[in-house]
Design a protein around this nucleic acid. Structure first.
Lengths: 195, 195
DNA sequence: ATATTTGTATGATTTGAATCATAAAATAAC
DNA sequence: GTTATTTTATGATTCAAATCATACAAATAT
């Protein structure tokens, strides 16, 4: 995320997208840097048979879809608005110039990418070697950690969304959550999950 | 990877590790930048019950284990030498100073990280929504692509290594490969896999 | 040249998550 | 306030990959 003081000097385009709008599609070539001013965005893959795999969520004041800007690769996933969104848009070339001119921003940026990388490495391990309950628990703890809140954390995802994030079926998620409650790994209150 | 002309001016320590040596361990805090001069390194996770998940392989002239240098996170995986290795070692602080002093190196570095990121995103999708055969095929194609060779590519991995990279059992890998041969997705000659 | 270890192969069985079927709660829409 | 839709819930069944058990081939060591 680029601080607004710096971003503004590069005259970004402020675009609005309504709920469910697609900002970019998988396999499309990247042309812009996107920074979310308001709203919520989901990055996801869609398969032949209509299955969804969610790579991640992005909240306001974060950028998304940057990695392919640095290579000559298409987007590895699609971005969809979960709410109405306002997005700062910067041309790829302008964005790369900005980084060159602001080494401190570039470094912060690298840090961000590295954190996401570490998260992906963690999730990959989970996906391949751990059973459903463990996978869900890791996801929930990650959400809690990145929310950085005190005390009990309310998970604001539906079972289906957890399903899309973990690659498990909804029924499996529901059963695993019940089991996790029994073993006191989380708290269930009026169907809401707390951790 | 830092060009040797630049790297040398920072007086890196050239360390040698023998086959099977551990360069760093999962959960350890990162203190150094590592760049492989010769040999081969594997990044992996080990689970409670002795299962292995391989995050990736690193050949000579590549750096590894950089992401945690940018945060205050421990290594998400361990690094082991698959052969005798020579490794350039630079202190974290020196490495970060180098990047600050050489924006072009920093940018190339970001590109590298982004490419790895895209690969991880791809693999995550595979792991979660695609069946074994597809998973193996994607891995093999990725290996071929990154080898960047002409024509038929020989996969120099054992079935067990493919197992560790895909999170599938050896027997499953063997059976899937046979099936992939039948459907002409790859070529099997004297037990060697070509693609 | 033979023994040992490592890698490949295959059949039989088990198991755990996906799938199928169906319904009740909770929310949103009208 | 009623209807429609989405989310949560649960039991029954299926199925594909893991596991188990063994054996054979190939590479390495002695």
């Amino acid at each position: 995320m680029i601080p607004s003081t710096i971003l503004e000097t590069y005259h970004p385009n402020l675009k609005t997208f309504s709920k469910d709008a697609i900002i970019f599609n998988e396999t499309e070539m990247p042309r812009y840097y996107y920074q979310l001013k308001s709203g919520k965005v989901k990055m996801f893959n869609l398969t032949e048979n209509g299955k969804v795999f969610t790579q991640g969520f992005f909240e306001k004041n974060t950028s998304f879809g940057e990695p392919p800007l640095f290579g000559s690769f298409p987007y590895p996933a699609s971005a969809m608005c979960l709410e109405d969104c306002e997005v700062y848009v910067l041309e790829k070339k302008v964005f790369l110039n900005l980084l060159k001119a602001h080494p401190d921003v570039h470094l912060k940026f690298t840090k961000l990418l590295c954190n996401r990388m570490l998260y992906k490495a963690k999730i990959m391990k989970e996906l391949s070697i751990h059973p459903p309950e463990h996978r869900i628990l890791t996801l929930l703890h990650h959400l809690k950690d990145s929310a950085n809140t005190e005390g009990l954390f309310e998970v604001k995802l539906t079972r289906q969304q957890i399903s899309d994030l973990t690659g498990l079926r909804v029924e499996t998620v529901i059963r695993a959550i019940k089991q996790l409650e029994k073993t006191k790994k989380l708290i269930l209150k009026q169907r809401k999950v707390y951790i």
